[in-house]
Design a protein around this nucleic acid. Sequence first.
DNA 1: TAGGAAGTTGACCGATTGTTCAAGCTTGAA
DNA 2: TTCAAGCTTGAACAATCGGTCAACTTCCTA
Lengths: 228, 228
Amino acid sequence: MAHGDVRSLPARRAANGKSKPANGRTAVRERNEAKILKAAEAVFARKGFSGASTAEIARKAKVPKPNLHYYFRTKRLLYAAVLDRILEIWLDALDEIRPEAEPADALARYVVRKLESSRILPEPSRLWAMELIGGARHVQPFLKGRLRQLVLQKSEVIRGWIEAGKIDDIDPAHLLFGLWALTQTYADFAAQISAVLGKDRLDDAVFAAATRTATQLVLRGVAVRSGR
Amino acid sequence: MAHGDVRSLPARRAANGKSKPANGRTAVRERNEAKILKAAEAVFARKGFSGASTAEIARKAKVPKPNLHYYFRTKRLLYAAVLDRILEIWLDALDEIRPEAEPADALARYVVRKLESSRILPEPSRLWAMELIGGARHVQPFLKGRLRQLVLQKSEVIRGWIEAGKIDDIDPAHLLFGLWALTQTYADFAAQISAVLGKDRLDDAVFAAATRTATQLVLRGVAVRSGR
DNA sequence: TAGGAAGTTGACCGATTGTTCAAGCTTGAA
DNA sequence: TTCAAGCTTGAACAATCGGTCAACTTCCTA
């Protein structure tokens, strides 16, 4: 699932170690790929894979359509490249769940970081949600492999907290699902939340209230005994 | 947002009160519309509005494409008709939040009913999620109107519980957002959850654990003082 | 300064999109 | 039995889809 899978470029720079560290003269490529990926992320997040059109992505990225296909041979490869970038963002913050951490701190910080992510980078979250709702056909290996292993591992950490009497008994995996749901809803369903609140966008006050509420639900929900 | 808006049929049965109660000879129409709506729901839920094709819907409903357009003149009207049916399902269970209800019962029953809905009717939830992620262009009036009013009204109920000392202080609207997120995640992101759990579908055991976990988070989260 | 790879792009491909047409079929009331 | 309204459907519409082609420019290297 590394970059190598996803990009199949027409030609790579001569494989020697001569030129400047790691780039050299591919500045054009780097810049254009970034432009296209950013535009693709936005369009895929709004319309999903089948609903998005390469023409719209190209228009948004301000490149002619054949140029888009020069950098990403097919729509599917472009989609894979976008997903590939997003996986890391998605996993971010899970490292708060560590055995030696104090559960109250760890869970609170996890909620804060995830909500921050929903505020600053809502589009990756929406694209991920679209992919999952559509059946997760393109990310099945990731879900059954890396993510599953990570959830099993973090579940062990949480079970450790329970056995140490630091938090109440709870199903660790479902606690994680709950954490994801409580935090990502503010990215995925921002349109609903802002409309219901009578705002035209989710401002800082909304996210502050969201953080308070989610933190309260989680910390009291697992009945954290504060350390010492 | 009533049915009248959504269906613009070539002709309605003669407007008299003669024939059998409320249908008469439109049995064919009723049956075909139902077939098409069901197929449309599934396809729209998987691909979103722009990603779905009328051809695929027609194929799934086992009617020729022009027949689909005979009953629903445009793709957009078909989509509106599908959304229209879903709104009621979506609002269901909110009536548990009543002033005279005991908060513990009301919240627990709400969670149970919503999770039951995620288990039995995941597709409407997924279609709704798709629509919201895509920007909620087709349901903006519903969100800003009926749903907003309902949320304001239920928020008052919850505020009443707080002031009566029955539950801890919490932002009522965000509590509702949390309840939605915690329960609908099992419909919307079923693909992720089942893959992570190593199952090929979300069985009864999963939903039982989900119910326990979500209920615990909510009831302890708001620190319900049991009645009396 | 010559050569060649990298990058750009207008024009075009067959396939699929949503939608329409018109000719047929079915059915219930007169 | 007639007849119109409701229903069905193969064929075709322009527009858009993902993707290709070949001619062009740009830019680095030798």
